[in-house]
Write a protein that binds this DNA or RNA. Sequence first.
DNA 1: TGCATATATGTAGGCACCTACGTAAATGCC
DNA 2: GGCATTTACGTAGGTGCCTACATATATGCA
Lengths: 163, 163
Amino acid sequence: MSQTDYIRDCGSRALGARLRRISEAIDLDATRCYALTGLKFEQRWFGTLNQLRLNGRMSVGEIAAALGVTHVSVSQARKSLELKGLIAAASDPRDGRRTLLALTARGEELVARLHPLWQSFEAVAVEIEAEAGGVIAALERLENSLKRQSFEDRVRSRFEEDR
Amino acid sequence: MSQTDYIRDCGSRALGARLRRISEAIDLDATRCYALTGLKFEQRWFGTLNQLRLNGRMSVGEIAAALGVTHVSVSQARKSLELKGLIAAASDPRDGRRTLLALTARGEELVARLHPLWQSFEAVAVEIEAEAGGVIAALERLENSLKRQSFEDRVRSRFEEDR
DNA sequence: TGCATATATGTAGGCACCTACGTAAATGCC
DNA sequence: GGCATTTACGTAGGTGCCTACATATATGCA
């Protein structure tokens, strides 16, 4: 059985593993690209920095929602961003539960410096999408399918039906 | 900017992050499904166990190649599998560098027990592919594009061209 | 006003992979 | 046969996310 057959034939893990592998390949390449700028940059910073660049001050939860990740993920990235002096955090005066994040001057500088590279990333993503045709649309359809009925739900009905 | 726009517009991280997120969602659901069997199962075990089920004794490198992951990944999964007595490892008499892995009787048992669930996974993956239409094909096209020219390469030419 | 419930986010530990590095065995060439 | 190079895989540390749990603040209702 070739790898393609393995992947086609073997269910959730095959699909999940494949998605992850492509994701990791892209991320790794991007990490190498940051080296072009001579900067030490953590991939996970991008989402948060970009949101703050676009929208200014935002709460942890808002950033998480915009990125489609958990607040924990943002909370954790935020720690290292603060350590590097790229963002500042403050409690929201209107709601003591919220933590507002904003770019520091240093963060603004870094973002400005990285912007050309980010534009290259974007252009390449567009290029690949054009070349591979319909990837984003396919992923959207996949997401919608899973939203309609989760993987777990589907397996449960089949598995319990078969027993 | 809505999340969809964010994802469409923002390059490598957007695509990479999306792939990862879907992957994680599927993996998490699958983890929950293992609970149906009352077994404690690590997702990363599936690939190796399945390969050994299909092919019998295999080396670390062979499994890694079949799964499309690094040997390190297999080497690490193997450790926990051995701890659980599911596989046995032995040096290959024909090549002292190679480590051959095989299912133990206990491993065979577990695999037999999980097989119905794995079949449900497979059926659901097929169902989703039918519903979402062309996901596997799109991923293949994406993989082929990246194989033809890596993300890094593409960014490099654009970035250095722009400077 | 008080209390039950909801919301926001931080901490801890875990997951499944990766790269970098290291060591041993095998191969190939002189 | 000896040595340079290649191959195989193990170890160490890291990445970027997750769930579970916990704590504090806000909201809504009696």
